[in-house]
Amino acid sequence: MEDMLAVSIWRGGEDGEFVSYDVPRLENQTVLDVVTYVQRKLDPGLSYRFACRVGMCGSCAMTVNGRARWTCRTHVSRVADDGRLEIAPLRNLPVVKDLSVDMVDFFDKWAKAGGAFSPTKSRADDFAAIPPGDAKRRQANAGIECIGCAVCYTSCDVVTWKPGYLGPAALNRAWTLVNDTRDGLGRARLRLVAGDDGCLGCHSQQGCQEHCPKSLSPTAAIAGLKRAVVVAVLKGKL
């Protein structure tokens, strides 16, 4: 193991540049540890975003050696065999400064995709009884652990080519709600996610599921939405 890591970090906005830093290599070290070391010891002006450090909040995603990753759970030993790290902001989102990107578009698209739960009962009603083995519940559970890190969004070429495309995370969220029997938005949500900028824009390249740190499959969720759209079209309901 090398004593030092050669780290290149993106500094500035969209027209910024990579700046090199030497960071001590440790036995057990994550990429977020490296970025934190640079900010605390070498360059306090470095901007980046993190919160939980345990893979729950989804705020520390960055592009590490060309691939989007959650940096708090990415060990340096897995990605920097030759002792080199290149850390850049996520693509497909505007760079605010250094490693911080503007997530507004990403989360606005969750709202556009009908990502908010639409209850059919009030707090006065009893709990909804849903068997764990229920087929729709299993479909919802498959995508429910999304942490909103935007790694899928930044890895999706369709988002790059078509900025209006809702993206894998928002569509995955919509699919979990389509399968939530307590939700009442129904076909109105299907209308939100149909069309060229919705699920039908997906080319099934599967970059989202290849890169998802939670090993979810937004591609499968989008395929489910496509099937639901086809059924609605054939029934004349869309």
């Binding site: 209308r191 149909a194 919705g198 039908l200 759209v229 086809v230 609605a232 079209v233 869309l238």
Partner: peptide, 13 residues
Amino acid sequence: MSVEGIQSRVWLA
């Protein structure tokens, strides 16, 4: 018919 409806039918076609 809505834009989404037309686009969905084109996609299905």
